[in-house]
Design a protein around this nucleic acid. Structure first.
Lengths: 192, 192
DNA sequence: GTCTATACCTGGATAGAC
DNA sequence: GTCTATCCAGGTATAGAC
């Protein structure tokens, strides 16, 4: 693997686990086992690494969404794929929170130029979920429903980071699935 | 006002707006208009300030919860007080997120000793909400319902920080109020 | 492409005069 | 209680040898 890619991979992980600002060049250099100097041959500034990491994450996200889409005909099943991450990636989330949400909120506080790019990853999920709701015939509510699902799952991620508790996540995911079913089969009764 | 309190107040604000790590002594000193040296007369380390800020926030939170409790007989109305913050404090939340959630998740990434104290503020809300649900006769589900409300509101805060949109918050708060009503009057139908 | 050496700055923290 | 002066560690970033 190319050094550049190794840097990117390590930075991606460290930014997630320690936060962007708290991660220094030394941290990344140590992880990749290169010298700090070598570093600058590949990336001129720390911001440049961040930009590349966000780009990487966006591409990975796009690939994942496409996979879910080609793997399931039923839009409901696709949305359930999204909800399942809370369980399959549960241990990371309880340690470090949601990678999308925590980065976006860190950059918001830093007033960082790349915050918009970070939010862009949220947008990928938002539009993808919206599309699924459209396919389910939710037409004009599709985007609102997408935002609702995003918010709900974000909240679960934040809370399980504060109170590590698998049972809580399981309960909420089941609740979300039940709500999804009810909402689609009978929009009136399920609210929103 | 005593200098110590001014430091605390400024630190509280800056930690919220810029994050704990991103806020330097110089930033606080500049805000309070004292020299950096003077600083150490009041607090020996940065961690000590953080500790005091969390303490301050916890006390403010306790006072607010008591106010809501003494101001309303109906537990449902009390819970609605909690949900209303999303609207009354909307502009701050869309700029900086939820003070409780963002601090707790920042400290989690820093692996900071005070993370537990920050989560303690979450616990104040959690237990208070649980108590209200108990009073509403939700008995064994009280804590799960409290966690659900916390997660939901946290998620809305995170999302509106990424996508500033008042209408979204209003929609979600109304949705929460409706869910609350339905859930309490007919536990079976409303799920969870 | 990779290294060492180094410049430069800002951060937290201390000492001591007033 | 408040200040100035100062220390030291660590951060980003650069230059230049290999």
């Amino acid at each position: 693997m190319k050094t550049r890619d190794q840097i990117l991979e390590s930075a991606d992980q460290l930014f997630y686990q320690q936060g962007y600002e708290h991660t220094s060049f030394s941290d990344i250099a140590k992880a990749v086992r290169i010298s700090r100097g070598n570093f600058y041959h590949h990336f001129k500034t720390k911001d440049e690494i961040l930009h590349a990491v966000i780009d990487l994450r966006a591409n990975n996200t796009r690939a994942m969404l496409e996979e879910w889409e080609s793997g399931h005909e039923d839009p409901m099943a696709r949305i359930r794929c999204y909800l399942q991450i809370l369980l399959t990636n549960g241990s990371n989330i309880s340690l470090y929170g949601c990678p999308v949400g925590t980065l976006s909120s860190e950059l918001a506080k830093l007033d960082h130029a790349s915050q918009g790019d970070a939010v862009g990853i949220f947008t990928l999920f938002r539009e993808w979920l919206g599309k699924q709701f459209s396919l389910l015939g939710c037409g004009s509510d599709a985007d609102a429903l997408a935002m609702h699902v995003l918010a709900w799952s974000q909240g679960v991620a934040t809370l399980v980071n504060a109170f590590p508790d698998e049972a809580f996540v399981l309960r909420e995911v089941n609740h979300m699935c039940a709500w999804l079913q009810a909402r689609v089969s009978d929009p009136g009764k399920a609210g929103l």
